[in-house]
Design a binder for these strands. Structure first.
Lengths: 213, 213
DNA sequence: GGTTCCCGATCGATCGATCGATCGGGCATG
DNA sequence: CATGCCCGATCGATCGATCGATCGGGAACC
């Protein structure tokens, strides 16, 4: 994407996250990007196209990363990696993940269907790890589907309050969330040094997939 | 409130939850309430006044209920009751709790300060129960503040997907969330019959505080 | 001289909010 | 009981502002 195109996208992510899609005007977008409102349309389609593009690329990266992290490993390792991935991305890409999570309702039906399909594929990675863990006896959950929804909300919620200035380093935060998630699933955690290894591996993947832009 | 005033408020809750505050027009509101857009202003102040009123009454009820449920009891009983309360209200009053949780950003600074103050008082009930439980050894959490945030997001998230038609009765759902919350806190759960008693008591309080309208 | 980039001007539509006017039912006065 | 008045409730019309989007043309670069 052209440098100006990226500026437009970044401005949109900031404003959509801050004020919401309907709360952001074309002129706000243009001002933030340092362009006239007319020039904006040289770099984007409609305002909704811009939203859809932000959501699909963000969700697409999350899905790619999730698939790589769950390609092998036992259920405990897989769910741990997914929790770390979800927490880390929602922290380091706080604004765009908020847009993805909060602006689904602003999409027209067909666009929404596309985005929901992506989200469902991602959430299936979680459900599969949880169900397998329940079957092997690694997890003890009475309602696996509810557990998936609860975990996703819990981990994604970090985007609503995280700031890099907080007292707890991000790596520690991811460890805490992994511990809490295993508590939700009624599972015993791995030895601490293995947990740290897992977080470092996940952080490296997040850097690899999210940094090149 | 007058019957028509209630109709206006109900319409606003539905539309704000469905389309967002900025996504809802005065004329949408009027149509849903069965009035002209002019008549709307006989029953409300500005559109934002309507939003503030919805948020403060909803949060006020939650705070009242939370204070009553945590007036006595050990930390485990208190956090269990808070989880049940949060889950039950976010399920039975799904729309208005979504408005409270999602539309904070649509408020002007002074109105937001009012609502945030209410929310902070409510969340302090959670933090106090968690901290006390950590001090007495009932809970085992490395980062109590993070645990509070994680629990609140996990429990409130039910408003994003709950429907009464689901396969799991609401009472069971509350029990599952209480179990998961104790897992997050590293606490042993109470015997099943005590847990059921707690949920029934919380459901009765929710009915008492939320039904009279 | 075509292509890319950019903008001032402007479009019709819709926004939140207000206007003056009307209707009808209670209520005090005679 | 009848009359005249008041007022809550309601509406159609309309306000100025802003919305998302488009146009034709200028400037810069290859």
């Amino acid at each position: 994407m052209s440098p100006t195109g990226s500026r437009v996208r970044d401005a949109a992510i900031e404003l959509f996250a801050e004020r919401g899609f309907h709360g952001t005007g074309i002129r706000d977008l243009a001002e933030r990007a340092g362009l006239s409102s007319a020039t904006l349309y040289h770099y984007m389609g409609t305002k909704e196209d811009l939203l859809v593009s932000i959501m699909t690329t963000s969700l697409g990266r999350l899905l790619t990363a999730g698939e790589r992290l769950t390609a092998d490993g036992d259920p405990l390792a897989r769910i741990t990696a997914l929790v770390e991935l979800h927490v880390l991305t929602h922290a380091v890409r706080r604004l765009e993940t908020r847009v993805v999570d909060d602006e689904m309702r602003s999409l027209s039906p067909d666009h929404r269907a596309t985005v929901v399909a992506l989200r469902d594929r991602y959430e299936h990675l979680w459900q599969d790890a949880i169900d397998t863990g329940c079957a092997t006896g690694a997890f003890h959950v009475r309602a696996p589907r509810v557990a998936r929804l609860a975990l996703l909300e819990m981990c994604g919620g970090i985007a609503r309050w995280y700031t890099p200035d907080g007292p707890i380093p991000l790596e520690q935060l991811a460890l805490r969330y992994a511990e809490m998630a295993l508590g939700v699933l009624g599972a015993a955690g791995p030895p601490p040094e293995l947990a740290v290894d897992s977080v470092r591996r996940t952080m490296a993947l997040v850097d690899e997939i999210w940094l090149p832009d």
